Amino acid sequence: MIFSDVVEVIKSLSTDEKREIQLLLQQYLREERREEIYNNFKLAQAEQQKNELRFSAKIEELKQLIEE
């Protein structure tokens, strides 16, 4: 099934079914975002354990860190 087929099937659903799909999609997106945040957290933890994290309160140093 291709995307356009999915869209057509959704268009044919009742309003209640469309709302249910909307709620499910919102839930799936939240779960994916949580997973992404968790993975970034784990990467940051690993970098911290290897003493690879660098911090600065100076704007020019922060710009350089971002560019690296």
Rank of each mutant, 00 (worst) to 15 (best):
Q49Y: 06
R33N: 11
L25H: 06
E32M: 12
I2M: 06
E35Q: 13
E31Q: 13
R33P: 01
E17H: 09
A57F: 14
S12E: 15
F3Q: 08
L23N: 15
K50N: 09
I10N: 06
Q49M: 11
I37E: 10
R19L: 14
I66R: 09
E60N: 05
L65F: 13
K50A: 14
M1N: 06
E35D: 12
E20L: 13
N51K: 15
D5T: 09
R19F: 07
T15H: 07
K18L: 02
E35I: 05
L43W: 00
R34S: 07
R33C: 02
S4K: 12
M1I: 03
K50V: 00
K63L: 11
E36P: 03
I66N: 02
Q64C: 00
R30N: 15
Y38K: 14
E67W: 01
S14D: 05
A44F: 05
A46E: 15
E67Q: 10
I66H: 04
E52N: 14
E52Y: 06
S56K: 02
E17D: 15
E8M: 08
Q48S: 15
E35S: 12
Q22H: 08
L24F: 08
L65V: 01
Y38M: 11
Q26M: 09
V6C: 07
S12Y: 02
A44M: 13
N40I: 06
E36W: 08
L13F: 11
E20P: 02
T15G: 06
Q48K: 13
I37G: 07
V9F: 09
I66P: 00
E61Y: 00
S4I: 04
E17A: 15
E32V: 07
I2W: 06
K11W: 00
E60W: 01
K18A: 02
S12C: 04
N40L: 14
S12G: 15
F55A: 10
K42L: 13
L23A: 13
L29T: 06
D5R: 10
F55M: 13
A44W: 01
S12K: 15
V9D: 09
N51H: 08
S4H: 04
F55G: 08
F3K: 14
D16S: 14
Q45N: 04
R54M: 11
K50L: 13
E8K: 14
E52M: 13
I21L: 14
Q45G: 04
I59R: 10
E52C: 03
